[in-house]
């Protein structure tokens, strides 16, 4: 159930919306970047291992 605000409801929901969306989007981007970096490092390490192995 959404709470019932007075005449300024639009301002309140805009604030909450901007805050939530921007932080969630940033978190998503940060986590995706972290996963890409982790995969790239694993790949590079595997290549290095193969390199020294042969």
């Amino acid at each position: 159930m959404l709470p019932d605000f007075d005449k300024n409801a639009a301002y309140i929901w805009a604030t909450v919306g901007i805050g939530t969306v921007s932080i969630l989007m940033t978190t998503l981007i940060v986590i995706l970047k972290a996963r890409a970096a982790k995969a790239a490092l694993a790949k590079a390490q595997a290549m290095a291992k193969k390199d020294t192995g042969t």
Partner: peptide, 23 residues
Amino acid sequence: ALVQTQMRTEIRERRTARIRADL
């Protein structure tokens, strides 16, 4: 939390770059 994740990304990117440079 976000700063830590970003830092982990940066450290991993630096390690990757170093390994690539060595290769």
